[in-house]
Nucleic acid binder design. Structure first.
Lengths: 116, 116
DNA sequence: ACAGAAAATAGATAAACGTCTATACAACCT
DNA sequence: AGGTTGTATAGACGTTTATCTATTTTCTGT
């Protein structure tokens, strides 16, 4: 159910994204395309211990607990974060492979223009 | 009307995104969060001459001309592409600064975990 | 075993979005 | 000037999405 693709596509200099690649990666961008989710992701990624408790995320927004939970689920399904329950609390951590894949795609835009 | 912000935010290692930064950058991710738009952007970015004619983009999809035009408008408003009319045709080119900004943000996730 | 707290799920609803058709605008060519 | 083609805008419509309240699940302590 979650997005686990790792190897994907060459730089945009070589060729545009194929339909399936675009659909897959668009899911990740869409997950980051909501202000609340992007902030959640940034909070998770910047957690000093590498992980953040949901109990610290939820009160940081003027939104209901289920809404935050829903956003976290979408980030998980996009492959951007992982969650682990330890006792009462659930901890979220970033999945750098996914962020790296997207970063590489975006960075390859400049690579194009440099080689042109 | 279009998104022109350039300097924005430090790596996610330092601190999470502020509300306004998140809202601004989420707009760009949202623009990339649609399969058609992502593919359009990839086609524009990979144009060998650095630009692509709308007349080449439109027939590449099973969608109406106004729909493609609408998607291109959103990419423009997000600051991801620029357009220029030359005679009858309109040409689109990527704006690497914007892609670079987003790439830097995503790449800073790994930087975090490396320094941890 | 039971009371309580943290997180997820279910279901409802209003707003946003992607798409279409129809129309307008802009530039070319006789 | 008028017809033709390329692109953008306007308006309509069905679907998706973000949010809420209510409930369920999972764990902890006593």
């Amino acid at each position: 159910m979650s997005n686990q693709g790792q190897g994907c596509c060459g730089p945009l200099s070589e060729e545009p994204l194929a339909k399936e690649q675009a659909e897959e990666m668009a899911l990740v961008f869409k997950a980051l395309g909501d202000p609340v989710r992007l902030r959640l992701f940034s909070m998770i990624a910047s957690g000093p211990s590498g992980e953040v408790c949901v109990c610290d995320l939820t009160p940081a927004f003027d939104l209901s607990q289920p809404t935050i939970s829903h956003h976290l689920k979408l980030l998980r399904q996009a492959g951007l974060v992982d969650s682990e329950r330890r006792g009462t609390w659930v901890y979220y951590r970033a999945r750098p492979e996914t962020a790296d894949r997207m970063a590489a795609l975006l960075a390859s835009v400049s690579a194009d223009r440099a080689s042109a």
